[in-house]
Amino acid sequence: MRRGQSESRLTGLGTGVFITLTALCGGAADSLMNGEPGTLFGVVFLLACVAAGVWVRPYDLSAAPVSAPIAFTIALAVTSDGGGGLTGHVMALLTGLATLTGWLYGGTVCAAVITAVRKVAYVTRARRAERH
């Protein structure tokens, strides 16, 4: 183990749960302050995606970018409130998905780039170890 690197890593399922719970907390805090998920929700989601990309196990690297949009949608569905029953809730969810798309793409792309770089580094390190 390299210095400064923790042994604990997130599994694929743990990555999805981590992003979902963190985004739920951000969305709930934003909803309490502003009445609906917005910028705080997006920033917390983005940070959760970055952390998940860094902390996911090498064998589960694809889980971070895959679970990010699912977690975003779940957190938005739980924290958005349309106030008009089921139809109002669905409309609030769809509106949130449309207006917060930048945060969704940003978090997903960050997780994908981080995990892709980690995968390349992991494969390169494994190939060097085979040669020696």
Rank of each mutant, 00 (worst) to 15 (best):
E7D: 11
G107F: 03
I19D: 10
A92N: 09
S6C: 02
A63G: 11
V120K: 10
T99Y: 02
G85Q: 13
R57E: 15
T73D: 04
T115I: 06
A75W: 07
W103Q: 02
F72A: 00
L86W: 10
H89W: 03
V109Y: 12
G96N: 04
V66C: 04
V117T: 12
A98T: 14
R2V: 06
R125C: 01
E7F: 08
L100R: 06
A112Q: 04
G53N: 05
L93D: 08
L86R: 01
F72R: 01
S6Q: 14
T99M: 06
A111G: 11
T95G: 15
G102E: 14
G12T: 15
S80F: 03
A29T: 01
V44Q: 02
A129G: 03
G16C: 02
V50I: 15
M91T: 14
S62Q: 13
H89E: 14
I74K: 05
D60R: 04
A28S: 04
R118F: 07
L10E: 10
H132Q: 05
R128E: 08
G82S: 08
V117G: 00
L94V: 10
A111Q: 11
L93R: 10
T20R: 07
V44T: 07
C49E: 14
R128W: 00
A51V: 09
G107W: 07
A92L: 04
G85C: 11
G16W: 02
A63H: 11
A68K: 09
L47A: 15
G14T: 03
L24H: 02
A52W: 01
L76N: 06
Y122G: 02
L100Y: 01
L97P: 13
V123Y: 05
R128K: 09
G83D: 13
G27W: 06
I19F: 02
F41E: 09
V17F: 06
G27F: 00
T108V: 01
G16F: 08
A112N: 13
A63V: 05
T108Q: 07
A77R: 05
T87S: 12
G35W: 01
I70H: 05
F41Y: 11
